[in-house]
């Protein structure tokens, strides 16, 4: 690891509060350095060269994200308590919960597939929800410790591995596929699961990572 002293920050006298503390940034997809324009709430700045999203200026990003994350967590618990779908055929009823989906693959001698489903439908969505709540509360209460930044970094990079919305599509496909052969009964959890998908997508659209990083930066004395 290199000492910070070797890497001087570029100086900026700009203390503009409108666009927080970021004044210049390099596009993640083409490396072009651009200065951010003054943005109104709800506006998105895009790279002039490759159209990549540079910055979203969201209203009340931290509070709204925290609300969606807490709602999501409650819905996640409910979604795991009851069956999502039940199948009725030949006088028998087979119930399927979220967890049973990964478990059944394990029992069918496909441990890797089972693990993959377990990670993408339970572990990563749950860490995203719990981690986001933890980081947002720390940021809001100004109680940032040395684990906050690594945790938030981990959450940002594992974001794509939570695949509940894809699982939702798979549930719909299965309902249509099975509809011909047997009676499909919607479980209690299916409704909370739909709401969970909604709050997760609201969370990812409302959370502006820059808002969190700006706070972490200010606390560490890293103003741009």
């Amino acid at each position: 690891m290199l000492e910070c002293s070797n890497m001087k920050l570029i100086e900026h006298s700009n203390q503009n509060q409108q666009v927080e503390s970021l004044s210049h940034l390099a596009c993640a997809h083409c490396d072009l350095i651009q200065s951010l324009p003054k943005m109104k709430l709800g506006e998105t700045a895009r790279c002039i060269r490759c159209n990549n999203v540079l910055y979203r200026n969201q209203k009340n990003s931290l509070n709204r994200s925290l609300a969606f994350a807490i709602t999501g967590l409650i819905l996640f618990v409910i979604s795991n308590l009851f069956p999502l779908l039940s199948l009725k055929a030949m006088g028998l009823t087979q119930e399927g919960t979220l967890f049973a989906t990964s478990l059944s693959l394990l029992q069918a001698d496909r441990p890797f597939l089972g693990l993959l489903i377990f990670l993408t439908t339970i572990v990563f969505p749950l860490t995203t929800l719990l981690g986001t709540i933890y980081v947002l509360i720390q940021v809001k209460m100004n109680r940032i410790n040395k684990y906050t930044a690594p945790l938030f970094r981990f959450l940002r990079s594992t974001d794509v591995w939570g695949m509940l919305e894809i699982f939702m599509l798979a549930v719909l496909v299965s309902v249509v596929k099975l509809g011909d052969l047997a009676d499909v009964i919607f479980g209690v959890s299916l409704y909370s699961f739909c709401l969970l998908i909604l709050s997760l997508s609201l969370l990812s659209s409302s959370l502006n990572p820059h808002d969190v990083w700006n706070k972490l930066r200010i606390v560490k004395g890293c103003q741009l």
Partner: peptide, 13 residues
């Protein structure tokens, strides 16, 4: 992959 997992979990007769 998820559809297969759901079918395996549900169709157990």
């Amino acid at each position: 992959v998820f559809v297969i997992a759901i079918l395996v979990a549900l169709v157990q007769f």
